[in-house]
C-alpha cells in the first residue's frame, strides 16, 4: 500500500492537516452539512465518529490476516455497522434527547466514507497500534472541521452557543444559517481558507 510506511504518531498527525479527511479528501460531507447547526449535536456526532473509527480500525487491523480478500469490504461494513448500532443504542438509552435531534445521522456513520476509507486504506495493511492512531487522527481531523463550522452557524442562526443564549435577543437571527444550504457555504468557505493557507505555506 502506498501509505504503508507511515507509522505511529505520524499516521495520526497527517490526518489532522495534510490529509484531513474533510478538507483534503472531501469525505464525510453529508454529515458535515447536516449536523453542524448545533454545537452540542456536532460534538456528539464527532465523538461517535471517533469511537467508530478507533474501534473499527482496531478490529479490522486485528483481523487483517484472516479476512479473505474477496469479502473484505463486506466484513468491514459489517464491523462498522455493529459499532454504529452500538452507539445508536447507547445514545437512545442514555441521551434520548440528543439521539432524537441527530435523527438518522448517527446511523449514517455506517456509510461515512471516512470510516470505510481508513479501514480499507490503512487498517487492512497495518498493525493495530498504528491503525488506532490513524483512526483517531481521522476522527479528530473531522472534528476540527465540523466544530468550528458549528460554532459559527449556531450563534448566527439561533443566537445561542451550546444551547446558551450568547447574542442579545434583539439580534435578527439568520435563519439561513441553521438550514442545510448554509452548511455548503460555511464548509466551502472553510475549505477555501484552509486550502489558501496550505498552498501559501508551500510557496514560501
Amino acid at each position: 500500500m502506498s501509505n504503508g510506511p507511515v507509522k505511529g504518531l505520524d499516521a495520526l498527525k497527517r490526518m489532522l492537516w495534510e490529509e484531513n479527511p474533510v478538507i483534503g479528501q472531501i469525505l464525510g460531507i453529508c454529515s458535515a452539512l447536516a449536523v453542524t447547526n448545533l454545537v452540542k449535536n456536532t460534538m456528539v456526532m464527532c465523538l461517535g465518529l471517533i469511537f467508530t473509527l478507533i474501534m473499527s480500525c482496531l478490529t479490522v487491523s486485528l483481523m487483517r490476516n484472516v479476512i479473505p480478500r474477496r469479502v473484505r469490504m463486506i466484513i468491514q461494513v459489517l464491523i462498522i455497522a455493529a459499532y454504529v448500532i452500538f452507539i445508536k443504542i447507547v445514545l437512545d438509552a442514555f441521551l434520548p434527547e440528543i439521539s432524537n435531534e441527530l435523527g438518522p445521522y448517527v446511523g449514517l456513520i455506517i456509510t461515512n466514507c471516512i470510516v470505510m476509507g481508513r479501514t480499507e486504506g490503512y487498517a487492512m495493511a497495518n498493525k493495530p497500534f498504528d491503525a488506532v492512531l490513524d483512526g483517531l487522527g481521522a476522527g479528530i481531523g473531522y472534528s476540527l472541521v465540523l466544530l468550528p463550522i458549528a460554532m459559527i452557524r449556531e450563534p448566527l442562526g439561533l443566537g445561542t452557543f451550546f444551547g446558551v443564549q450568547v447574542i442579545p435577543s434583539d439580534w435578527t437571527k439568520w435563519n439561513m444559517m441553521v438550514i442545510a444550504p448554509s452548511g455548503f457555504f460555511a464548509l466551502a468557505t472553510y475549505i477555501w481558507i484552509v486550502r489558501a493557507l496550505k498552498s501559501g505555506g508551500e510557496k514560501r
Binding site: M63, V66, I67, P68, V71, I75, L78, I79, A81, A82
Partner: peptide, 10 residues
C-alpha cells in the same frame, strides 16, 4: 468465515 463473523457481531 463470513457466516461466523456475521453471527458474532449480530
Amino acid at each position: 468465515f463470513t457466516i461466523v463473523v456475521t453471527a458474532v457481531f449480530t
